[in-house]
Each structure stands twice: as C-alpha cells, then as structure tokens.
Write a protein that binds this DNA or RNA. Structure first.
Lengths: 214, 214, 214, 214
DNA sequence: CATGAATGAGGGTTCATTCAT
DNA sequence: GATGAATGAACCCTCATTCAT
C-alpha cells in the first residue's frame, strides 16, 4: 500500500459529491467508480469499504470544523461576537465541504446510532453545548432576548445555518462571508422593518473591520 | 368494501414513520412489515410497490398542505399577516404529517427528477412563487426590510420552518401554534435584544385574538 | 362440497383457454379467476390447486381421446383405413378440446416426469404402440411405402396432426373432417403433382360414404 | 477484452438447453446458474436479465436461419428445388440450434405480443410470405398439386419440419440431411404405396449430386 | 494500480394457497 | 359460494466485496 494521498482525496471528493446528490444508500459503489473513471472493484485498492469512504468524508469535515470552532471558542469573545464568528465559520465550512455538510445533514440522524459513527453523536453534543452556552451567556449579558426558549433558539440558529448547504453552490454570486452576514442580520435583527431599521440594517452590510478567527 | 381505507392509512403511517427514521433507501419492505405486524409480501395486497407507498405519503401531505396554503393565500391578508399565517399553517402541517415532512426534506431533492415525482418540482415552484410574492409585496408595503436579498430571505424562512420537522415530536411540550409564534418572533424581530425589545417580545407571546384561516 | 359440475366445467374451460394462451407456468391463478369473474381465492372452493386443474384438463382430454381411439382400433379396419380413422378422430378431438391439446403439446414433455402426471407417459407409450402397429401392418399389407424409417414416419404423422392445434380455431372456415381429409391427402399422397395425380386428388375430396367410428 | 464472448456463448447455450427442457417460465435463473457452474447472481455480470438471455438465444437463431433462407431464396431455383432447399436448411438449423428452435416453438406464440420480441412476429410474416410464394409458384409451375388449400399446405409443411426439434437429438443416428431427405420424400410423395412408387422412393434415397446452397 | 469475473447476502416482488367472515 | 386479507416460499435481480491476473 503506497501513499498517493492525492488520488485518495480525489476519489473521496467524487464519492462525497455523489453521496450528497443521491443519498448514501441510493449510491452504488459502481456509480462512484463511474464518476471517478475506474471500475468498482478498483476502489477497494484505496478504501476498505463504501462505509469507510463515508466515514472519512464525515470525520474529515468534522475535524476541520472543530478546528475552527475551537479557535473561535478559545478567543474569549463576547457572546454576540462568538455567535457571529461561529456562524461565519460555519458558512466558510459549507463553502469548503459542501458535499460533506449535505451528507451530514441527511445521514447523521441514522448513522449516529452505529458504533462506528458514534463520533457524530459526540459532535452533536459538543455543538449543543457550545451553542447553548453562547446563547445563555448572551442572554445573561443582555446580548440576546430573554423571552425566548433557549433550546428552541438553539435549534433555530443551528438549522438555519446548516440547511443552507442544501442549496449553496460554491463559486456562486455570494461569498460565504456575504451569506453569513445576511443570515446573521436576519437571525439577529429579524426580517421585519421597524423604526430606525434602515440604519441598523446598513450596519449589517458594512464591511467588517476585523476578523480575529481564521 | 368495508374498512379497507383505514388499514391502508395505518400501514401508510407505519411506513412513513420508518422512512422518516431510516431514510427511504435504507428502509427495507420487511422492516415496514415488521413494524406493521405482517409479512413483507402482504404489503403488496395493499400497495403496488414500496415506491407507491412513498408516493402516496408525499402526495397526501402536499395535498393537505396546499389546501391550507391556498386558503391563506386567498384570504387577502396583508403581507406580514400572510407570512404569519403560512408559517403557522406549516407548523400545523408538521404536527399532522411529521414523518411525511421529514421524508420530503430528505428525499425530495433526488426524487424531483423522476417522472413519477414530478409533482414535487411543481410544488416547489408554487412554494417559491407564493413566498416570493408575499415577501416582495411585504417589502413594497413597508412590512419587511428592504436591504435583504429576497431570494436569500425566502430560503431562510422556508428552510428554517421545514427543518423543524427533523426534531419536532407531536405531543411534546410546545403546541405547533406555540412553536410557530416563537419562530415568527425570531424570524420577524430577530434574536438580538434591543431598546424596547421587551415590549414587542411580549406582544409576540400575547394570545392571538383571531385566526381567520383554518 | 356440493355437486355443481357445470360450474366446474365452466371454470375448467376458462382455465384451459388461459393455459393454452399463456402457458401453464406463465398463467397466474388470478388471471384465471379474472377471466372467470371471481377472485383468485374462490377458485379453491372448486379445485384443490392450480395443478389439479391442469390435471383434470389433461386427463379429461385423454380419456375422451382414448375412448375414440379404442373404438377405432377395435373396429378391425385395414391399416390404411385405421390410419385415416385415427387422424380424423384426432382432428375431431382438436375441435372439441383445442385448448387441452395445445396445453398437452406444450407441457407434456416436462410433466411426464412428475408422478402425478405419469399417465402422460403411459398415454404416449400407448400412442406409439398403436401407431407403430398400424404403420407396420400397413407396410406389411402393402398399404404404405416400405422404404421409410417407420419411427420417423410415426413421428412425422403424429406431430403433423397435433401441432395443428396451435393454429386451429373451432368454428373456422374448415370443419375438422375437411381438415382431416386434406391432411390425410397430403400425408398419404404427398404434395407433389404426378401423372394421374388429379384423379386421385379428386378422390380425396369425394364425400366419405361411411363413418364407422364416432 | 479477452475471451469474454466465448463465456457468453457457453452460458447462453446452457440457458437454451434448460429453457428448452423446462420451458422459459418454469426455468429459474438459479437452475441455469447451477447447470453452468456458477451462482445465480453471477449471470448478471454477463446478461441484463433472464429475458435478455432468451432474446439473445432467439434472435441469434433467427439471424442464422435467415442468412441461410435468404441465400436459398436468392438462388433462383425452381419452386420444388426451393422447397427442398428450405427444408434441408431448416433441418440443418435444427441441428445447430436445437434448443433455440424448441424454445421458439413453445414460447414464440406468447412472446410475439411483447414489444421486445416484435421481431418474432416479423419473422413469422417473412416465413409465411416466403413459403406461400414458393408453394404458389410451384402450383403455377405444375410442381405441386392444385387441389390443396395453399394456406393449409403451408402450415402442414412448416409445422411438419419445425416440430422435429422436439425429438431431434444432434449426433443421433440420422444426419440432418438424411432426415431432411426422408421428410421431403414424405411431404412430396406421401407415405402411401402406389404403382411405380418403389422407383420414385428409391430416387428419394439416392445421394444428392449437387448442393448449390450452403 | 486496475481489470474482469465471481461471490453471497439480501432486497423488492410475485404468487399459490389458506381461512375467517 | 364468494370475499378480503394474509401467509410463506420462491424468484429475479442488485450490490458490496473479493481476488487472480
């Protein structure tokens, strides 16, 4: 078994694309091989199994994601800034790992229960913890509204961000940062127009002056 | 013919539950049969195929949904009220058809291309049209912010609502109306705290005095 | 279990028709039931199994056939007259039991080996014996050519007659007797034109003056 | 790609043998696989479906057959010689494609209606046309008797030849040419003994001096 | 590294048959 | 006599996986 990590990456990217488009179960190993330009059996020189491809795709994505999240969480920002930073990091991750995110969205619910994919449940717990802490300390700090159910808010923000992977196409009109900004504006300020909204809204569009993470 | 349609409904509900939990492709017909307490082959007395079960589940849900949406859209409400009504109707639909909504979320992307499921693409177009019109006339009427990309807003609102099906459990702590109210409050006002927020937020919780639709 | 032998016969005729058209294995019990205007399960009030229908159809036909053949064979005719009588009896049987004959042609080869259908092998042996004896004594008596392989001739005559069931339609242009006459003329005299042929051929068409059998 | 086509041919021959013995519908894919010495699923590496095996078997046979028939029909022989040549070609084809012919006999009636096997109906029409023309011009030329119904004669000759596939075993006592000769003798001259028959019959057995076709 | 051919487990589906009503 | 619903065995076919070349 030689190295050739680039070929591996290539094949993995192809697989991720097909998994994302067809769903993991509906994807045959042959379809991946077709897309990659070799025969089904040949994939087994590079990977142990179809499942291990999925595994590698998902864990690769989560590793990247946590690297960034951890940097944000360790930066000691104020709650609202933390939230903004996490959302922005998420959209950047969607940009880099679109297929993996889409797969994660669709399949993680069921995979979580299998021992091999236990790390998905772990990741979810860490997500929940990070977000809840951020929101709760934001409420305590007067950054966020106090009248909302925090769990509901958590789900709202979380889902709101990740589903974007289902329609986002890298290289499209909006950069990930631009999308993050608009999403943050909606999540934080709402979509309803109010007195003085225009001023605040304009702020939301203003170029960020610092980007402490990544 | 006697109580045939009820049995059909029973089996369909069981199937929907399993499809939602495992994904359509990962679900074997035997598993559905197990859950329903009969043998795999017996399902074919009631249905033509696994696919036709899926079809019936999805189209049943969409029919119900459009019945309600159409009532709302025909009511001649102001844009913001229309949006509130649509979101509320959606959460009620999630409450009644949780499994179907979850399936729709996960599978419709891929099914859309098959002739048999062409109605999924149609439905999506009608959704888009209804929502975009509501948002655009809301912007024109001064109900909604003018600085947001309308398509982005559309996706934001749409996804935000429907993903809820992935965690919602009927009969849980919050009624669909209660969840709708909190979501609407977040979507419309945002989660950030501002001057005078408390008053408005309180309003969001106030009991609705009229429910013109459904 | 009450009598109702007419219903039985009706159903059996329907079954025979479908078996003949589709082949026994390709015929589903449900198709027979459809054609007979009842539900598949209801057939089992009348018959033990699909196979027993087939059995009854085939043995019914063979019983009839042997009744006639035996009468012919017992009549003490000269070999050539015996042959003519057997062929004529066969075409009459094709007329009365067209479907059964067609089924017999297609399926008997395979059924013969099953214990339940052992009588098919018996029948074939009796056929062979009757025909070979007729042909051999015909050769000895100077009725038939001496230069032909008798077994080959037997197969030639036998098949030549029975395959007709595959295209024969009762109530068509030609009566069974008419067809028998033409076939006999071809089998006995050949299709080639020869000196004095016209006279003999005409004879073949002449009305039979006696019909000792049937 | 190396010796792939040979394996295909091997498997196809095996399948044809089993189809011929058991009937297409009564034959399970597994049985074919058993006879070929591999597992049922492995057949699908070589063929799309059970039906496509049948298709290939039948169309392969018909292609071969028409190649020979066309050569005969294009040779410009006299009607009687044409008939002799066609019958001889048929028996040679039975020798080479015994199983396929038997399958054709048993199944073509039902298959004809399926779009995929439409070529069976075409073939039948071409057969009919070729034979009828030969017989009719033979009648006109004084080769064949004028007192016979031509359609009946056509069926007589056609069936007479092809059913032989149900009992013929390649490598048996008689060569296909020998069988053809005896059949032709019976069909043309009849089996009845007549004045001067012996001379003509002897001719029928005489070695052919020329074989212009094949 | 890749191919071609095969394996073996299972999946969707069909269908003869049963039986309470 | 017939129906509606179910059984259970088997069938065709798919697909992840293996392995000699």
């Amino acid at each position: 078994m030689r190295p050739a990590p680039e070929r591996r990456r290539e094949l993995l990217d192809t697989a991720a694309e097909v998994f994302a488009a067809q769903g993991y179960d509906a994807t045959t190993v042959r379809r991946i091989a077709d897309a990659a330009g070799l025969l089904a059996g040949s994939l087994y020189y590079h990977f142990d199994s179809k499942e291990s491809m999925l595994d590698e795709i998902l864990s690769g994505f989560l590793d990247d994601l946590w690297t960034r999240y951890d940097r944000v969480l360790a930066a000691g920002l104020r709650p609202r800034e933390t939230l903004e930073a996490l959302v922005t990091a998420s959209f950047r991750e969607i940009d880099r790992h679109r297929a993996a995110v889409a797969i994660y969205q669709k399949e993680s619910g069921r995979l979580r229960d299998q021992p091999r994919f236990g790390y998905l449940a772990d990741a979810q717990r860490r997500f929940e913890h990070a977000w809840l802490r951020t929101l709760e300390s934001g409420v305590a700090a007067g950054d966020f509204r106090t009248d909302l159910d925090v769990r509901l808010t958590y789900r709202f923000v979380r889902d709101t961000v990740w589903v974007a992977a289902s329609w986002y196409r890298p290289g499209g009109r909006h950069s990930p940062e631009e999308i993050a900004r608009q999403y943050l504006s909606m999540v934080l300020e709402g979509i309803a127009l109010r007195n003085g909204q225009r001023a605040r809204a304009h702020q939301a569009h203003a170029p960020r002056t610092h980007e402490p993470y990544e």
